[in-house]
Structures are given as structure tokens and as C-alpha cells.
Simulated assay, not measured.
Amino acid sequence: MTGPNDPSTGPSVVIAGVGRFGDLHARVWAEAGARIAGLVDPDADRLAEVGRTHRVARTGTDLAALLGQVRADIVVIASDEASHAELAMTALTTGSHVFVEKPLALSAADAWRIADIAQAHQRQVVVGHISRFTDQMTRMRARVERGAVGRLCALRLRRDFSRAWFLSFGDRVDPVWESCVHDIDLAISFAGTRVRRVMAMRSGAAGDAAPSVVTALLEFDSGVIATVESAWLVPFSAPGTLDDGPLDLDGAIVGEAEVLGLDGMLKQRLVSDALVEWTKAGVQVPDLSLWPEEDGAVGGALRREVRYSLAVCTGRGRPDLMPLEQACWGVEAAEAIIESLRTGAPVEPARR
């Protein structure tokens, strides 16, 4: 007997990119009822390892070639950032829906090109801005929409990462695409409009680490302003937030989000003292919002994000929580921030 969550009856999924996060995606999509039909990665050894872990026989180093052999209802893109746009366009033109990890693309032109192809082929694209799916942000957004803080005036968003992460992978693209893009997206989700103008600076005091320390000011069409700050400078001695969980990522994400309105204010901290663990391994403040283990399965925001994506791609849900248009606005804003960092001047994001 099979049921709605039986892998043999679920939509077929191909995972493009099987690094740490691609490996985790394979697990979560399978737990959500999808059938992992194939894996793609340029690293043949890693491909074989993850294929064995998830018992996936169909693998390849080229997405277009694999999609010629394997039917994929959905292609999940968890590869390096520079490859997102090309892989998304390949998947869409072969008839697959797409889930792509953030950022959607590294240029506004490519982002809107993906949107055009998706519309032409009547396919869905969901961008993996996971912070939208946390309990805290879901509640904060609902409170703003219900008028709890009155007229929205300003947003303050800060997200700091472990210094070791920058040395390991943070400089493969401009860190704006790695860290700031999370909070650019959150600001857009609260403001609900496009970014009109940006001004950004890096820390000259950081020396060679300057790319990892960014402050940006965003002005929206609605008049709302937002500050987005990111520093990959959290020391190794800081309490870990992701050390013990389904993702092999030792270190910490530390930050805050504030929503300011004429009638009230909402504030959330990414590191909470609700649970602190002092053990032989050191001090841990485990994050229970992103992808915690819950009863033997991955839970939290990642599970909700995947279930939302499955519903959108199978026609059982509306693409309302993560509209593709807003993901394109985020790419516009990130691109403008990088240009402002280069020129030292205010920049208006390119609009089509």
C-alpha cells in the first residue's frame, strides 16, 4: 500500500549541487514525500558518496545531459552561486519547476531572464530565502500586516557569521550575495515594495577582511528605510549555533532584526538564551529555527520551505510567501549595493 508521502508516488526531484547543503536538501525533500530521481555535481567523487547515502543511482556531472535521461518534476539547485542562473534556465527550458537556493542570480538581467523563461514555459520558480520561513519572521510579518506597529517606518537588520566561514567559503563571491542577501530579502518582505536607492560602505579598518564587513542603507519606494549590516568576524570562541545538527557547519550566526512603526516596534535576536548548553565540547546556543532535528527528521524553516515549494510546484499552493518578482527585486538591490561599494556613491538599482 502506498500513501501521499510514499516516495514512489511523490514528484521526482533532481538535486543539482551535492555539497553540504545539497546533501541536506536531498534528505529533506525525500522526508517531505519527493522521490530523488537524480543528482548532479562536477565532483564525481562527492557525487558517488552522496548517491550512496541517498540510494540514488542516476547521477551525472551535467544537468542538461541528466535531464535528457531522467524525468524531473522539480530541479533543486544547491550549487555554487555563480551557477544558479544557468542551471535554473536549463531546468526551466526542459520543463521542470525550479527550487534555487539564494541568490536567484548574480545579476538583475539574469534574474529577470529566469522569470521570463518560467512564465514562457508555465513553470514555477521558488527561491530559497529560508529566513522568510522561520517562526519568528512569519509572526513578525503577520503582525506588521495586521497593523500592530502602525505605519512601517524603518527596518534594522544585522547578521554576523563566523570568521572561519569567510576564510573557508565566504569569498567565493562577494559576501553581499552570501550574507547581506538574506536581510535584503527580509527587508523587501516587510516593505513589500522595490528598493529605490542604496548607499553602502565597507570597513577600511578590516584590512584584507574588508569584503566581509558591509553596512548598507536601503530606501524603498514606500519611503521605508532599512539598514543591512554584515560582518564575518564572529570569533571561534563564540558559542556555536549550528554545531550539533544535520548540517556539518561548525560556527555561529549572530544577528538581530528590528521593525519600527509609528505605533510600535518588533525585535528578534538570532541568538537567544532560551537554551544554552555547557558541555565538554564547550558552550552552545543551538539554533532551533533553521533546520533542527525533530523526531528523527529535519524540521524548522527548511522543512516548511520545502513543503511550501512542493505545494507551489505541484499546483496545490499559491506562490505567495516567496514571490519570484520579489526575489528579482532582491537581486537588483544586491547588485546596486555592490556597485555602491565600488564607487562610494549612492546607486539606484537597475529596473527593467
Rank of each mutant, 00 (worst) to 15 (best):
L104S: 11
S237M: 02
L106K: 00
A345E: 15
H97S: 09
G10I: 11
R151T: 11
A30K: 12
V298Q: 10
Q119K: 14
I253N: 09
R269F: 06
L157H: 08
T138L: 10
P346V: 07
V283G: 02
G296K: 03
A88G: 03
V276C: 10
A109D: 15
A115V: 02
G299E: 00
A231K: 07
E219N: 08
A333C: 07
S289E: 14
I130M: 10
I15F: 00
T61Y: 01
T61E: 12
Q268W: 14
T93D: 11
D80T: 09
S131V: 10
K102Y: 03
D171Q: 15
A205K: 13
H121K: 15
L302S: 00
A91D: 04
L155T: 07
V312I: 11
A205C: 03
L302A: 01
A187L: 08
A311E: 14
P175G: 05
P346A: 08
E229N: 13
H97F: 11
D221K: 01
K267R: 14
P286V: 02
R156Q: 12
S189C: 11
L260T: 09
D110I: 00
R156L: 05
L247E: 12
A142T: 12
A216M: 05
V125S: 04
S83R: 15
W291E: 11
D23I: 03
V14D: 00
V149F: 07
G245V: 13
E178T: 10
S340G: 05
A105D: 05
D23E: 14
V100T: 15
S79E: 04
P349S: 11
G317K: 04
P175K: 03
F99R: 01
G19L: 11
L242D: 13
L341D: 08
L47W: 03
D174M: 01
P4H: 10
L288C: 09
E49Y: 09
G240D: 09
L275V: 14
R20Y: 05
E258S: 08
T193R: 00
R197A: 11
I338P: 01
L260V: 15
H84V: 08
L266A: 02
V198Y: 08
V198L: 08
K102H: 09
E49T: 15
R304T: 13
V50A: 06
Q268V: 13
V75E: 07
R139L: 12
A187C: 06
V347H: 01
G17N: 02
A200S: 01
S168C: 01
A154N: 01
A57I: 02
E31S: 12
L167Y: 02
P346F: 03
R303Q: 09
K102W: 01
S203Q: 13
R194P: 02
A78T: 15
V13R: 13
S230L: 00
M201W: 14
I184K: 00
T314C: 14
E277H: 07
T138D: 10
A16Y: 12
G170C: 09
R202L: 00
